[in-house]
């Protein structure tokens, strides 16, 4: 009996964890290339969710079929978030690229608050309900329950992560990203336009964040201007847990965090769920600060 509960929580954990992983990739990509914790990334995810939500409702109202409405909404949200990410880098971070590291970090927190306030101005302070575009009717597999929405989240996440790994390891632009992450000066000597590569990194991370935002909103059926805060912190935890700067680390970290949270729910009340993420964060920082897939990107011989 309790094995069923465990299996169910593992399934739930994988669904949530794959979303954490997508968001964590945004943190880790930016960190890998700039050694900057982009605390505004959670807000980009929120903007993605709210943009997609407003668009999807409007498209549904205009009589567009749900699947097409969803796809269109996601695509536009990705474009909006990519633009926000690139603009934030251009305006807030680039002028500080050679400043002491505390300056961009504090700036990132400032940008995070700024984006939240912009979201309040544009969307308001309300909780919005996210339309059920993909069926959430429970499907029974043995003693485990899952719905189509969750299945789509899992499959999409895996596909996106595989796609990102392929991009980073098998394309010219991806190789240039890794080269720039390792040594900007020498990358410049190769004729790589570093500013362009950094902008592309922000665009990709933010577009992935937009999709993750839609996933969270559709999974919980709601979205609001504050949703990026906790989600961002947890994804950041996942990135640190995996080893920040490392793509595999972000993915593994996200999945593990999702699993820990949901399996942990067997033992404690739901209200305490958020504690796990931060217990994990503190434990990792104490016992394995370089992360599970430990490779210190920031330090070079």
């Amino acid at each position: 009996m309790s094995i069923d509960v465990l299996l169910q929580q593992i399934v739930n954990g994988l669904v949530v964890g794959s979303v954490y992983a997508l968001v964590a990739l945004g943190y880790t990509m930016v960190y890998g290339i700039l050694q900057l914790i982009n605390f505004a990334h959670g807000e980009v995810v929120m903007i993605g969710a709210l943009t997609a939500l407003v668009l999807a409702k409007w498209l549904l109202g205009a009589g567009v079929p749900p699947m097409i409405a969803l796809l269109l909404a996601i695509l536009i949200a990705m474009a909006v978030c990519a633009a926000v990410g690139v603009l934030v880098e251009r305006i807030a971070y680039r002028p500080l690229r050679n400043a002491p590291r505390l300056a961009p970090l504090i700036t990132a927190i400032g940008v995070s608050i700024f984006l939240q306030q912009i979201a309040i101005l544009v969307f308001g302070r309300n909780y919005f309900s996210f339309p059920e575009l993909i069926s959430k009717t429970p499907i029974e597999i043995g003693h485990i329950t899952i719905n189509m929405n969750e299945i789509v989240i899992l499959i999409t996440s895996v596909a996106l992560m595989a796609g990102l790994l392929w991009l980073v390891h098998n394309t010219k632009i991806g190789t240039a990203m890794r080269a720039t992450a390792e040594n900007q000066k020498v990358a410049g000597l190769m004729g790589i336009d570093i500013n362009k590569i950094i902008a592309i990194t922000f665009a990709i991370g933010s577009a992935l964040g937009a999709i993750a935002g839609v996933m969270v909103a559709s999974n919980y059926g709601q979205a609001h201007y504050y949703m990026g805060f906790m989600l961002g912190l947890k994804a950041f935890t996942a990135a640190v847990m995996g080893g920040i700067g490392n793509l595999w680390g972000a993915m593994v970290g996200g999945l593990i965090l999702g699993l820990v949270e949901n399996v942990g729910l067997i033992f404690v009340r739901g209200d305490y769920k958020d504690i796990f993420a931060f217990v994990v964060l503190v434990a990792v920082l104490i016992f394995r600060p370089q992360g599970l897939i430990g490779e210190r990107v920031a330090e070079r011989a």
Partner: peptide
């Protein structure tokens, strides 16, 4: 420096500066 390459000037920097985490081919 990134404009030099287009002009036909390449620099092999002091201390070699290879990308340690890229393979030889990359």
């Amino acid at each position: 420096s990134h404009a030099l390459v287009g002009l036909g000037i390449a620099l092999c920097p002091e201390g070699r500066g290879v990308f340690a985490r890229l393979n030889v081919h990359e």
